[in-house]
Amino acid sequence: MHELKFDQDLCLRCGTQACLTKCQYIEFDGETAKKEILKIATGRDSFVLHKCVTCYACEEYCPFGNHPFYLIAERQEALGISPVPRPLVQRAVNLGIPFRGEPDIKEINGPVLNMGAFSDHMHLIQGKLFEGLPVISTDERKMFHYFCQLMYLHYGKDSVIKKRLPGIIETIAKHKPTEVICFHDECYGAYTSYCDAYGIEVPFKPIHFFEYLYNRLIELKNMIQPVKLKVAYQRPCSSRLSPDKHLFVGRIFNLIGAENVKREFVDENALCCAGAIQGQRQEGSRKRAVIQQQRNVEDMKKAGAQVCVFNCPACLQTIGDLVARNGIKPIHMTDLCRLAIGEIPAGWR
C-alpha cells in the first residue's frame, strides 16, 4: 500500500510550525502547535483532528512540503474521527462510483484537456482558447471514470483515494496523452502533490489549467483587449495543493488588464467557499459556513470588486449566487479570459 512521505524529524527541527500557527480555524501558539503535530505524526489523538475543517491550507503553509494535511486526513480515518456525519461520508463514497457504462478510449498521443468530474461544464471550454485541443471526460454519464477522488480528503476517507486513484490514472493513461491539462486544479493536485506524497506513479505530465490558459493567452496576445474590470479571485481549497501555480492568477490578470483588487482574504489568507464546512459534525458548522461566506463577500465588496473570478465550479455553485446578490458578477476564469479576446460567454451582460 502507498505510504505517506511525512518526515517527523522535519517537524522537530522546524522553527515555525507554520502548518498550524497559520491555520485560520484553530488558535495555536508555537509550542502547542509543535506538540500537536508530533502527536498526530506518532498516531496519537489530538484536538486538531477534531477541530480541523479540512481547508487544505496547511499543505501550503508548511515551508518544507511535509504534507501535514495529508497526515491529518490519514489520521482522522485511522482514529475514526470523521469530520462529517456518516451518511454524508457514505453518500460521497457512493458518488464516485461510475454506473453508466465504460469510458470511450481514444488514443491521443499528444496534449489533452481532462474535464475530470466536471463533464457537465463543457460550456467553460469554448472558443479560441481551446481550439484544436483534444478533450477527455466529456460525457457526464461516464465522468466518474476520470474523477481524481481527492474530494475524500474532506471526508476522512483517505483510503478511498488510495484505492481508486491508480485505476483512474490508468484510464487516463489509456488515452496515451503526453501532457494532461487538468480542468480542475484538484486533479492537478492529485497527479502532482498527492501522488508524489504517496509514491503513486503518474505516466503523463500534468499541466495546471491556469498555466495552460496563460500560455494560450500569450499565443493569442494580439487579440487581447484589456477587460478593465476590478476582479476578486475566489481561491479554492484545492489550489493549496499547488501553491507554486497560484502565481498564474496574477499573471493572467495582468495580461488581460484585470485589476486584482486589494483584499484582506487573499493568497495565503484566502477564505474558501465553505462548501465543505457547512455539513461538518462540529457544533455550529452550518452557521460557521454562512458567516465565512458573508465575510468573504463583504471583503470583495469593500475592495470594490465588480467581478468575482472562480477557479472551481463547485465554489461557483456554492457562493456564486451570494456573490451575485451582493452586486458582484460571478464568472469562471475561462469566461474572463474569453472576454479579453473579444468572445462573449453565454449569459454575460
Binding site: S82, V84, P85, R86, P87, L88, R91, G275, Q278, G279, R281, E283, G284, S285, R286, K287, T318
Partner: peptide, 23 residues
Amino acid sequence: REEIIWDDTLGEYIRSGDGGYLG
C-alpha cells in the same frame, strides 16, 4: 428558518454523526 430546522431541530443528529446536512 434554516437555523430552526437544521441547527436547533436536527443538530443532535449531525453531532452524533447519524444525520448530515447537505446544503
